[in-house]
Write a protein that binds this DNA or RNA. Structure first.
Lengths: 278, 278
DNA sequence: ATCACTTACGGGTGACGTAAAAATC
DNA sequence: GATTTTTACGTCACCCGTAAGTGAT
């Protein structure tokens, strides 16, 4: 039995011609490769190299072995890809909050791999679910379609994030009316929430950030109010230098529903029940 | 990267359905398999089994992975076979002595694998060399064919082996004439030597043994004379309870020649020069 | 009680890196 | 002197077996 790691090393030596070069590409040292090549020869029970004091060349047999190695490595790569693909559950989201929830479920559970697709509107999600682009979708409204099984997943509640000395910190809670007109910094890609805040605070200005890193930087180093939620706070996006104030009113809450095609209900049964954490 | 040994174990679990059975066939313990299957799941990043307290079943994904594993294992087996085959040098011998010599050379040198073919007469060897059944042959006569390159390999000298108190032990050396009529125990498969001793000691009886083990047993536990040679003695077939007496005369020596087709002389150059040890 | 799997612990192999040597260019 | 391969040495990971534990039949 010749292990994959040896075949990988043999193939690298075949490709890069010297142990030195091969070692560089494999991110290891030459002596290790020397030993590996000796081991491979021992296991085949036949020499694969023509050895001269400072030159090592694959012989006819070594080239044959290297070509087999290439085939096997490709098969192995294909196996990894296909098995992972087969295990991937495509879930469409309308907001980043529920994505955090399910990411957490997938990380700790036994449901395979969650593919990371861009956020979409409820309508597009439902269309994608029907066309099997998605295995599951998370919508912000209950779906009453006969072909679709849906179940409440979680409720996200909006918070305003401000620095310690900000005037808002004297309130226990806030409302959209009070906040309307305030300038916020927020991520661009937050799905449904963008419409919600823009509709409820039409006079506010929103400094949209493409990258989460950029947003974090600005939140840390400025006094501009920002948004958070019970979900983002739970999953470690809480900032020590900020105070989080809940927003009252039913428009500041959003309940999400996890949906699948009815015929797949069985398949995702465990997931559908286990995912309920809020 | 999933190593071959893990794929082998996964495939065994697929075949034998329980860890218990698979472990038995793999000659290992269940806990080891448990850990291996956990490791494989970690490396794929997705579950491959449906786990119940005392039952583990491959899920759809696990079956897919197991089938890939089977393919890769077959490829690996094919690689081993083909590379070894490609490295095998088919050598035909007319006697076991030179085979020991070359076996030793192949064991310690870099010439690949020596295939173990039955002993043949010089004529059949030469025919086999021409028809490419053999890459090399070892004959007991120099070959003067124009297509064949031959080189002296070694000279084997015959000894008689007798127990310590045997009457022959008073002689420094013996001759065929003196020995003729003696009963010997000897291996059946000793090629040319069988003819040599039968011709030179026509009145002797030969207790032929098919297996080397049987011969050894008889040599150890009886007082029947037997044969040996400078070569068998060198390669560890010497017996503490026996005395070895050389046989005089040119018919008790045999010089062997290593031959290849002339066009292959280059290829076996190193071997041809390095093999000369007697 | 037996079976099937998992967890905990300890040991030995071996894969790796570092250092240094040998040999060629 | 630079490059390439090999050898020597020490370390750490990990693969394995033993023993004990959990849960189901």
């Amino acid at each position: 039995m010749i292990e994959i790691y040896l075949l990988e090393q043999l193939y690298a030596v075949y490709q890069y011609e010297t142990l030195n070069q091969a070692a560089k590409h494999l991110h290891m040292t030459q002596p290790t490769l020397t030993r590996s090549m000796q081991k491979i020869e021992r296991e085949f029970g036949t020499p694969l190299f023509i050895r001269k004091p400072n030159r090592m060349t694959l012989n006819e047999n070594g080239i044959l072995a290297a070509k087999y190695a290439e085939r096997i490595l490709n098969e192995e790569r294909e196996m990894m890809e296909q098995v992972r693909l087969n295990a991937t559950v495509a879930i469409g989201f309308c907001a980043p909050g529920p994505r955090m929830v399910l990411n957490d479920v997938f990380r700790h559970g036994d449901f395979g791999v969650l593919s990371n697709l861009p956020l979409q509107s409820n309508a597009l999600l439902l269309e994608g679910l029907r066309s099997k682009k998605y295995d599951l979708i998370v919508t912000s409204k209950e779906v009453k379609d006969v072909d679709v099984y849906s179940k409440e997943l979680c409720t996200e509640e909006l918070f305003v994030s401000v620095p310690y000395k900000h005037p808002y910190t004297k309130f226990q809670s806030l409302t959209y009316e009070k906040l309307n007109g305030t300038t916020f910094v927020m991520a661009d890609d937050i799905g449904i929430w963008k419409h919600i805040v823009e509709e409820n605070m039409p006079d506010s200005k929103y400094l949209l950030q493409d990258s989460i890193d950029a947003l974090s930087q600005i939140v840390i180093s400025s006094t501009i109010p920002s948004f958070a939620s019970n979900i983002t706070l739970k999953y470690g996006h809480e900032n020590e230098s900020r105070v989080y104030i809940p927003i009252d009113g039913k428009n500041a809450k959003c309940t999400f529903y996890l949906c699948c095609r009815k015929e797949k209900k069985e398949m995702y049964q465990t997931l559908l029940t286990q995912a309920i954490t809020f």
